[in-house]
Nucleic acid binder design. Structure first.
Length: 485
RNA sequence: GCAGUCAUAGUAUAGCCUGGUUAGUAUUCGGGGUUUCCAACCCUGUGACGCGGGUUCGAAUCCCGCUGACUGCACCA
């Protein structure tokens, strides 16, 4: 289904919608999740916990969103997370200073250079606005982090631009108190904040967004010694190589040198198995190795997990081998010791990161699950039952003859065990359609026969077929059908 | 951030050019009825001119600013 239809569904059924929408000064890049969206998000995260955190015995933390200045001095975000920009005095057009200079004067100035260097070069080479020939104002830094002031003294701090910094900062304590052993995964779900220049397309480019990040700390000397690699060695990865996507097992990818080591391949394998279970169409996915220029400033080797949608390839996960970039910078800045013992070796761990964009993942799940059933004139969200915002609708065929009361009874029986929705009003077909649209995989209908033999019908969303079962069996059936895989 | 297009109920739209009755329609939604297993029907009700200025006796309509959405460019660490 396309972006437009997903957007319509999102607005009509309260999956997500613009933040502060009743006010005229609402800013772009901020969206809220409604009840249905939250329900899917929570279930998606439960799946993530099962398939990655628990499976790999990772530790999950929940850190602060506001972090002190030193953290970002050490992480490099204060220096590198900013673009040098110049603005035309006449027409107001803004350019990236380094890019414009490289283009016009053919001189490479690193983007982290002093601002005066850009001004000097612009003077020297007499660079003017490409559009109106106007003069440029002095270069400025546009930092994508949101600055906040703490307390009455307005102490400088920042909203985190990625969740992982708390994981790095917390690593020494966690390793000691949780009896850590390399390789050790530490995970976190939470919000991050980036002052994007042009937020776009609802959940796909936000200023405030959810990440589920995993940082795996490892001994860099043992990247090919990983016993659990055998668990995923036959898992098939889809990897972009030059112009085509090649499908190969994790084992083959390492043997052919497509992936540098077993360690990285293991986590790409886990990630593949996870996304298969979200119901995203994996035939439309790929891992893409990033080139030198595309990589983040902290990354050594980087693979993006991307999925093709109706608005193009979307990056859902960034997998970065960050080496000891973060731990050594924080060690230097804080004087804290980050070396740990790995058997008899004292090592400064390296980090492999799996940084997942939750909002984009949810969008993709919706886009890949939503379909139009023309034959039956309905929109169906064929989402995996364990991710569905509502598991089951509980309906009375008619309100009268005591069926409503009987339906209430059935609802009370299951309401705390499943996400269920009670509905008596209107035609039965309409109620089924409403449930189809929010992806409820099952509908239970109480009819006249129920009063005679205590049976109800269960209707399945995808094929609209119905079975008659005893009320006493409902819990078992639903538990089985909505269970995580 | 730049350029173009646009902004009316939950959703989709008409009206705007040419200012003037109660802002129309479809669907959704609430209540009632009838029928009963796939958006039927009948009655009834709720619900909108993005925000701020200006012009005017009078603004959804004309003008200005802001905000947002879409598309393209740039950006995406």
């Amino acid at each position: 289904m396309n972006y437009e239809s997903v957007m319509k569904l999102a607005l009509e059924r309260a999956f997500y919608f613009p933040s502060c929408e009743i006010y005229g000064d609402a800013q772009a890049g901020f969206w809220e999740y409604g009840p249905t969206g939250v329900s899917v998000k929570n279930k998606f995260l439960e799946l993530w916990r099962r398939e990655l955190v628990r499976r790999d015995r990772m530790l999950e933390i929940d850190g602060s969103q506001i972090m002190s200045k030193s953290v970002f001095e050490a992480s490099g975000h204060l220096g590198n997370f900013a673009d040098p920009i110049i603005k035309c005095k006449k027409c107001g057009l803004t350019f990236r200073a380094d890019k414009l200079i490289a283009e016009i004067a053919n001189v490479e100035i690193p983007e982290s250079a002093d601002l005066e260097d850009f001004d000097k070069m612009i003077q020297e080479k007499n660079i003017v606005c490409t559009k109106c020939k106007g003069e440029f104002d002095v270069a400025k830094k546009f930092n994508m982090m949101f600055r906040v002031g703490i307390g009455p003294e307005d102490v400088e701090a920042y909203l985190r631009p990625e969740t992982c910094q708390s994981i790095f900062v917390d690593f020494p304590r966690l390793f000691k108190t949780m009896r850590g052993k390399l390789p050790l995964g530490i995970a976190q779900v939470g919000k991050s904040f980036r002052n994007e220049i042009a937020p776009r397309q609802s959940l796909l480019r936000l200023r405030e967004f959810y990440q589920a990040e995993i940082e795996v700390f490892c001994n860099p000397g043992k990247l090919n010694e990983l016993e659990k690699f055998s668990e995923i060695e036959n898992t098939k990865l889809r990897i972009q190589i030059s112009d085509g996507i090649q499908v190969m097992t994790c084992k083959e990818a390492v043997e052919k040198g497509v992936i540098p080591n077993k360690f990285v391949a293991y986590y790409l394998g886990l990630l593949t198995e996870f996304y298969e279970k979200t119901g995203i169409d994996m035939e439309k996915s790929r891992f893409r190795k990033l080139g030198e220029k595309e990589k983040a400033f902290y990354a050594d080797v980087a693979f993006d997990f991307e999925v093709n949608t109706t608005i193009g390839w979307l990056e859902l996960v960034a997998c970065n081998y960050r080496s000891d970039y973060d731990l050594s910078s924080h060690a230097k800045m804080s004087k804290e010791k980050f070396e740990v013992m790995d058997n008899d070796d004292k090592v400064l761990p390296h980090v492999f990161e799996i940084s997942m964009g939750i909002d984009r993942s949810l969008y993709t799940i919706l886009e890949h699950s939503l379909r139009e059933d023309k034959e039956n004139e309905r929109m169906v969200l064929s989402i995996k039952p364990y991710l569905a915002p509502t598991h089951v609708g509980v309906l009375s065929l008619v309100k009268k003859d005591g069926l409503a009361e009987k339906t209430d009874e059935v609802y009370r029986l299951i309401r705390t065990k499943f996400d269920s929705f009670l509905d008596h009003s209107g035609a039965i077909g309409r109620r089924y359609r409403r449930l189809d649209e929010i992806g409820a995989p099952f509908a239970i209908t109480v009819d006249h026969q129920t009063k005679e033999d205590n049976t109800v019908t269960i209707r399945r969303r995808d094929d609209m077929a119905q079975d008659r079962v005893n009320i006493s069996e409902l819990e078992t059936i639903l538990a089985k059908e909505t269970a995580y895989p």
